[in-house]
Design a protein around this nucleic acid. Structure first.
Lengths: 208, 208
DNA sequence: CGAATGATCCCCTATTAGGGGGATTAACTT
DNA sequence: AAGTTAATCCCCCTAATAGGGGATCATTCG
């Protein structure tokens, strides 16, 4: 059975080219093409597409919201962002909204077909530059710019789990005062004034 | 000029196969192959490889640490993880350590060559299942499964910034007791017993 | 119209946390 | 051998937090 595809793209010429391209391979059924995604949720519910190609920069409702609407309507539909934007903001917003792939418009038609098949096989097609950005976002530099010791890291980790000073002390088999000492040192090193700030900083900066 | 490649893989047969495979295409220079990455840092400094293929499960020093050593020695060297592991833990640890790609050992030789070229062109080759996990990690539920109200979200956000109850109250122009009420309701809804746990949960589950 | 909810406010008590000191020991560095 | 650091422990005091009760008022909703 042909893959059912829906396209959201406000550039009429490009959209028509895509429709033409996909239809003429014979492998795809273009179930619809729209120049906006105002009604993306209902469209998805009605046509139950396998794949959605989603532009980002569209009037009224952006493709970012579009992804969210499609995914809420039908989580199994794979959404591939198809855009000229390489900036981090739009990329990560799209991914957070649930996009399954992210292609730059400069890719060749054959790569687009590859990408559609890849996403149907459970993959996540991305243009190389995009994939690099995504992996780069995990990269964590020198974790220890605050020179937190191993012991302090243990204490800090327990703190983020909501342990009280007393619980930390008993779990580590040290006295209450020692645990407190560690905490005080941690606060000084992280330049914070309380445990709550320390937890926030530790989690946000991936110290733990 | 041929791409200079170094392989860290403790399975002798597989490693030799890889060396054979890469050498016989003529496009690659295998500058070294090792069954452990104890000395990965120095090896990288000496041979300055373009690409490193890194197994994860190795005796003494794991490939995760191996990536870190290679990247510290020479950030420009692209490191591709080459492993049987699909579990989230090892995947994300590798990415955090700075891996540029993540391939499962079941891929075909031709795909391996593709991946090596892709990583040299600034991409981030990943097996489809891996790419899906990576993108999935950005996905945020947005379900508000804890039915936190708008006001509570304000309070929770301030809490994660380390604000005390008193500060929250004055910033929101409400009484101390009201702020405290909100906090108590938040703790109940998040099923936690203190502010520290609430902050942890809010940040980890992207509630804020 | 009542019921439910969200936001506001109050009281009481026990525990916890935070800031300020200071001290000892073992291990590693210079 | 002297110095540094990490880890351990102790005391005092004040402020903040958590858990347990309630209460009022407006809005939303069936």
């Amino acid at each position: 059975m042909a893959l059912r595809i829906i396209i959201f793209e406000d550039n009429d010429k490009l959209r028509e080219s895509l429709v033409f391209l996909l239809k003429n391979t014979g492998d795809y059924e273009v179930a619809g093409d729209y120049n906006n995604c105002v009604d993306a949720g209902n469209i998805t519910r009605v046509y139950e597409p396998d794949v959605v190609l989603m532009d980002i920069d569209m009037p009224e409702v952006t493709g970012i919201k579009g992804v969210r609407m499609v995914k809420e309507a039908r989580p199994d539909t794979a959404v591939i962002m198809f855009t000229v934007f390489e900036d981090d903001e739009k990329l990560f917003q799209s991914l957070c909204a649930g996009a399954n792939g992210y292609l730059l418009k400069k890719i060749s038609p054959s790569r687009l077909f590859d990408a559609i098949h890849e996403v149907m096989e459970g993959g996540a097609p991305m243009s190389p530059a995009i994939a690099r950005k995504v992996l780069g976002s995990f990269r964590q530099g020198r974790t220890n710019q605050y020179s937190i010791t191993a012991r302090e890291l243990e204490v800090l980790t327990m703190l983020t789990k909501g342990y009280s000073t007393k619980m930390i002390a008993s779990d580590l088999n040290i006295s209450f005062e020692t645990a407190r000492s560690h905490l005080k040192n941690i606060y000084t090193k992280l330049h914070v004034n309380c445990g709550k700030e320390a937890i926030s900083k530790a989690l946000k900066e991936h110290i733990i």
